[in-house]
Design a protein around this nucleic acid. Structure first.
Length: 422
DNA sequence: TCTGGGGTCCTAGGACCC
DNA sequence: TCTGGGGTCCTAGGACCC
């Protein structure tokens, strides 16, 4: 049996956990750069504010409180929730920042699945302050559906019946995990409108309609037959790791662009080390601003292409100095004077486990001087706080950084921002 | 009507997830 | 004025191998 525990409007719930004044208010958390709404409290939803609404369109709206996204806080809270879930089963599969699959054996506990779900919900709420919904089913796809139902129930818990057909009957096909807007439209044209109809489709149907095999797996899962694997990130084997950001304002200088690329490369390298992996190639990319007068969301000509350069490393590495020296010339090559840039990013690819990357001539990549330097910087930053030491190539002014005007404190990860009780 | 069969690797594009 | 970031998987097509 699989349970999906999914936090309710997670980012807003994190903000509320440390600022009770937000309770009962319409709260919206904004995307990076304070661009658009990405998490809404129930009160905010009730005001008819849609996911993705640009912030500037809501400015001055009565009774609405905004927060910039505070990923340091959300990431830490996510880890704490996972730890609580781990008290129920050793097999916790973190699927995203706000949800996790819990794997239980086949034997139903004496009090039943529903009671177990209530216990999970209660403990997560009491120990972290975050409310969540819990749905039980034999497959991930069905557990997703069970979780949606759970969130609509007062108790916040739902266990899928052994025969799920009555539940799937009439459930719009786009609400099934893995069926997006496009697939749903194609399925509907083929006469498949709800989850029950999809569950009844066999291999022949998918072949004939030229659907991908992933959809066939989804159909199996709807029938209660497990056909999905754990997420690769969860397995600790990502295929690529990247960092990209929109700038807080247009960037037109080579120095600034270089600094931004360097700091994203350093951040990506840090992720790589944390995963115990090394990369062999980097993709460095930038995106120009739209021409003056263009660029609205509704303007079909707003989009500008990404320009990228791929740089191979001399040897697989996760050491920031080695990655920086490969990536900086790439940023210089991409830069063209007179252009304005809105975004840059670094994607590290060709990943393998660090221990597997040792070779006869160079030995373990983690033994090289640059790698040992990186490890020392990581250790100091872990002890004294992120950003205590950084590379000069990342720049010191960094006024191209994203806007986060309504950022809350980070009480769980910064001593100086610890909550004060009066 | 019909033109061998079986592979690998790479890239680009599309779709999906949160 | 102002619209996020980070991933995965699948498919098709081309180049190449024997």
């Amino acid at each position: 049996m699989i349970a999906l525990a999914d936090a309710n409007n997670f980012y807003v719930s994190c903000e509320r956990a440390f600022d009770p004044r937000l309770e009962g208010k319409a709260v919206a958390v904004l995307s990076n750069n304070d661009g658009c709404v990405i998490s809404r409290s129930p009160e905010c939803k009730a005001m008819g504010i849609e996911m993705g609404t640009p912030h500037f369109r809501l400015r001055g709206r009565e009774g609405l409180v905004f927060r910039s996204s505070n990923y340091e806080l959300y990431g830490d809270m996510s880890g704490r929730i996972a730890a609580v879930l781990g008290t129920f089963t050793p097999e916790v599969e973190r699927y995203s920042i706000d949800e996790a699959f819990l794997h239980f054996g086949g034997t139903e506990p004496p009090d039943g699945w529903y009671a177990l779900g209530c216990a999970v919900r209660e403990r997560v709420l009491r120990w972290t302050g975050i409310p969540c919904g819990v749905g039980f089913a034999p497959t991930r796809t069905l557990a997703k559906i069970a979780n949606h139902i759970a969130k609509k129930r007062p108790g916040g818990v739902y266990a899928m019946p052994a025969d799920p057909r009555a539940v799937l009957d009439g459930l719009p096909v786009e609400e099934v995990w893995g069926v997006g807007r496009h697939l749903a439209a194609r399925l509907r044209r083929s006469g498949v409108a709800d989850a029950l109809a999809l569950s009844r489709c066999g291999r022949e149907f998918f072949r004939r309609g030229r659907f991908a095999v992933t959809l066939e797996r989804t159909a199996l899962e709807l029938r209660g037959i497990p056909a999905t694997d754990a997420d690769p990130l969860e397995r600790g084997n990502p295929k690529s790791v990247g960092v990209s950001r929109m700038f807080g304002r247009p960037v037109a200088g080579a120095r600034e662009l270089g600094e931004a690329v360097a700091s994203y490369a350093a951040a990506a390298a840090g992720k790589l080390r944390k995963a115990g992996m090394v990369a062999s190639v980097a993709d460095v990319y930038v995106q120009e601003c739209a021409p003056p007068g263009r660029g609205g969301w509704d303007d079909p000509g707003w989009w500008t292409p990404f320009l990228s350069v791929t740089v191979p490393f001399a040897a697989p590495t996760a050491a920031t100095p080695e990655i920086l020296s490969a990536v900086r010339p790439a940023a210089e090559r991409l830069f063209a004077g007179g252009k304005r840039y809105r975004r840059a990013g670094v994607l590290l690819c060709g990943l393998e486990r660090a221990e597997a990357a040792a070779d006869l001539f160079r030995g373990d990549p983690r033994g090289r001087p640059a790698a040992r330097l990186s490890a020392a910087v990581d250790a100091l930053n872990a002890r004294f706080g992120r950003g205590t030491l950084f590379y000069a190539a990342e720049g010191t002014a960094r006024d191209w950084k994203m806007k986060r005007a309504m950022l809350s404190p980070r009480p769980t990860t910064r001593w100086r921002e610890l909550l004060v009780a009066r």
